[in-house]
Design a protein around this nucleic acid. Structure first.
Length: 715
DNA sequence: ATAGGGTTAG
């Protein structure tokens, strides 16, 4: 027996290093059972260890349970590791506790798995107690354990968005006076990073993984300076950055829009043969896209040796975030055709494209797909759906999704509030109050939504109130968008001087677009004196600001000052400026049809024109009188009439009417503000043709029904 | 034991 055992053991040990497949592992196990029964606990533990290295959880467990307790430490360690690598983190930790309760002492090999489980379960407290255990056993100087400890503290330093708001009372109390507001928002001190640093400093030996881990921890917590400092230090200690290091630091240059540094990393990656690495590839795609170099992103994507869902997500995001919505959608389709299963991420990336293009049908199809793939519980996905439905004018669906979300974070609240704001609902304001009651931390974006809501409802006093709440109670420095919203509101309320003073006293330099909100108010209120003053301010800051020239020229044209208007138009031409062409689009049978003013290129233009004439005749019989006062050209009345009647929104609506069943709602989106005459005409059309017409312009939604518009003619 | 992509913005 004893010799037989010795022989088998020797054979086994010879075999062990040869085992390369699961099949060989099982064969060895079988041979062991044949040659000697019973197999010793030590040998069985060896087999379990081999099984667990192949991630054969069931086989490991079955064998584990055949060993008489107390099972050897080696067996326990294998089970714990196998649970952790199978994603059963709770079981892994339970086994760890059991192991200790039967008196087995864990060693350095098991702690990385245990700490990984703590990370996955986001259980910092348990992780800390494991840390205590590591210290008592004197294992804190072990390289692998130290790395795993650092990783645990780095990962469980809560990301800002998920910080419980009352955990940082000093932030809540922080009051930023108007004078100091140019400073960046206070950076939150990470709790975990101190510990990471401590562990790092204690470690007698550090390898690339140690450096990568601490760098990643800093990046994750937004402390880019420290991360780059560590990168430099790492080089000083004779360790070369590897592909992990590079893809960890690339997001820094992406977020900082630092193309120069990003390219340096790209070059380094190529020189060191990392350029085929998928991780680095997608980080680079993202970096170039963030620097608006989408073509470079495309190039990188095409050079990737293989593309997984993440690479696709990166290139799709690159398009969508740079306003190339159609391309983004096309790539999404290509991804599906390439049999790449979209992930939750993929949906939250593509949904803003539907939101911007107002492609409700497509959005709904994707929503169905999201439900089928079980991604509807994902917070990011749900928020993007709320936004999509709201932007497509289906505020009810938006609200339904919002109400059914498991938790609502500031992003989903913001999407919902902005949705109401765009529809001019007073609900936006009450929803914001609800958000605050629910204890959700406000951020600068939600105040953009609130101020927009005030603006669309004409609530000047409320807007002032929220503006000062934002700065004084929430310590949020107003940005351009906040100033623009308030300036716009004051202007539209006719309080031009107040708006002028307000913009003049901004603590950051106003841009052309902030002033141009006031300029367009000057146009509406026909205040030339102020318009001149404002225009001068704009040209001082941004002599190339096309919008201002166009506004001024229109204003003079409308007032009959042809010479002035022409002078401006000549200037524009000399500077090579082009007015942004007005464009409207409508989704019909899953396809987006776009129209620009006077556009005859649509295949059904004949029918559209016919319908347009018919509609015009019918609404004129109902009392519609064309208002051509906004047409700046010094042209004759008939031409003016023609010009307004072929505005892009009318072409889109006419097309909608002839290509959809009677009585159905028509949804049109326009890239510029809808003109006064079209607004009047569409009111008539909604009544005469018996259609609800929902127009989203660049300002807000207009919901036309029975001859009225939801904006109450205030927009 | 370490790495890539995400939602809200006149």
């Amino acid at each position: 027996m004893s010799t037989c055992y010795q022989k088998s053991l020797r054979a086994f040990l010879e075999q062990e290093s040869v085992i390369k497949t699961k099949h060989q592992a099982k064969e060895l196990h079988a041979r062991l059972i044949r040659t000697m029964a019973p197999v010793s606990a030590i040998l069985n533990s060896k087999i379990i260890s081999i099984y667990s290295n192949f991630n054969l959880l069931q086989d490991s467990l079955t064998l584990f349970n055949t060993i008489d307790s107390p099972q050897p430490t080696k067996a326990w360690k294998s089970i714990i590791k196998c649970y952790a690598s199978s994603g059963l983190f709770l079981n892994s930790l339970t086994s760890f506790n059991e192991m200790r309760s039967v008196g087995r002492i864990p060693d350095r090999n098991v702690f990385p798995s245990v700490l990984k489980s703590c990370v996955q379960l986001r259980d910092l407290r348990l992780g800390e107690s494991v840390h205590g255990c590591v210290m008592r056993l004197g294992l804190d100087c072990d390289l692998y354990t130290g790395n795993a400890l650092m990783n645990m503290y780095a990962k469980l330093q809560l990301p800002k968005a998920q910080q419980p708001f009352d955990e940082f009372p000093e932030r809540k109390k922080q009051v930023v006076g108007l004078k100091d507001m140019t400073e960046k928002p206070i950076e939150m001190e990470a709790l975990g990073m101190d510990t990471v640093r401590k562990v790092f400093q204690t470690m007698p030996i550090r390898d690339v993984v140690s450096w990568n881990t601490i760098i990643q921890g800093n990046v994750h917590g937004g402390r880019y300076k420290e991360a780059l400092g560590m990168l430099r230090e790492m080089g000083n200690s004779d360790l070369k950055p590897d592909s992990f290091t590079l893809s960890t630091v690339l997001p820094i240059f992406s977020k900082n829009v630092d193309l120069k540094k990003g390219k340096e990393i790209h070059g380094f990656a190529i020189r060191h043969g990392f350029d085929g690495d998928g991780f680095i590839g997608s980080s680079l795609i993202d970096m170039y896209a963030n620097c608006t170099r989408v073509e470079d992103s495309y190039k990188l994507f095409s050079l990737l040796p293989q593309c997984d869902a993440v690479s696709w997500n990166s290139i799709i995001a690159a398009c969508v975030q740079n306003g190339r919505f159609d391309e983004g959608l096309e790539l999404f389709r290509q991804m599906l055709r390439a049999d790449i299963e979209p992930l939750g991420h993929s949906f939250s990336i593509i949904m803003p494209a539907c939101a911007h293009l107002t492609t409700l049908t497509l959005g709904k199809q994707l929503h169905a797909y999201i439900i089928r793939t079980g991604n509807d519980e994902n917070l990011y996905v749900a928020s993007s759906l709320v936004d999509m439905y709201a932007k497509c004018g289906n505020i009810k669906n938006a609200r339904w999704i919002f109400d059914n979300m498991e938790i609502q974070d500031s992003v989903s609240w913001t999407a919902m509030i902005m949705g109401y704001a765009m529809h001019g609902h007073y609900d936006a304001i009450s929803l914001f109050e609800e958000m605050q009651m629910a204890g959700v931390q406000s951020n600068s974006v939600v105040f953009v939504a609130v101020l927009t809501a005030c603006s669309h409802a004409g609530l000047v006093n409320e807007a002032w109130k929220y503006f000062s709440t934002m700065t004084q109670n929430h310590g949020i420095a107003p940005g351009l968008e906040h100033y623009a919203a308030l300036a716009d509101l004051l202007g539209r309320a006719g309080r031009l001087q107040e708006a002028y003073d307000f913009i003049s006293s901004m603590h950051i330099k106003p841009t052309g677009s902030v002033w141009s909100a006031l300029l367009s108010a000057c146009r509406v209120h026909r205040n030339f004196e102020m318009a001149d003053k404002v225009a001068k301010e704009i040209f001082k800051i941004d002599p190339e600001y096309t919008g201002a020239y166009a506004l001024l020229s229109n204003m003079y044209g409308a007032a009959g000052s042809w010479k002035e208007a022409q002078k401006i138009r000549i200037t524009m031409r000399r500077k090579g400026m082009k007015k942004k062409p007005a464009c409207s689009w409508i989704e019909v049978k899953n396809k987006v049809h776009a129209f620009v003013a006077g556009d005859k290129s649509h295949p059904f233009y004949g029918q559209i024109d016919e319908a347009l004439q018919d509609i015009l005749e019918r609404i004129e019989n109902e009392g519609y009188v064309p208002d051509t006062s906004e047409i700046p050209h010094d042209v004759d009345e008939e031409q003016k009439r023609y010009a307004v009647s072929t505005h892009s929104e009318r072409l889109a609506i006419a097309f909608g009417i002839i290509s959809s069943p009677a009585g159905t709602t028509i949804r049109v989106t326009k890239n510029l503000r809808v003109c006064v005459d079209c607004h009047t005409a569409i009111k008539f059309i909604s009544k005469t043709m018996g259609r609800e017409i929902i127009v989203r312009d660049n300002i807000r939604f207009h919901h036309f029904k029975d001859g009225n518009c939801s904006c109450g003619d205030y927009w």
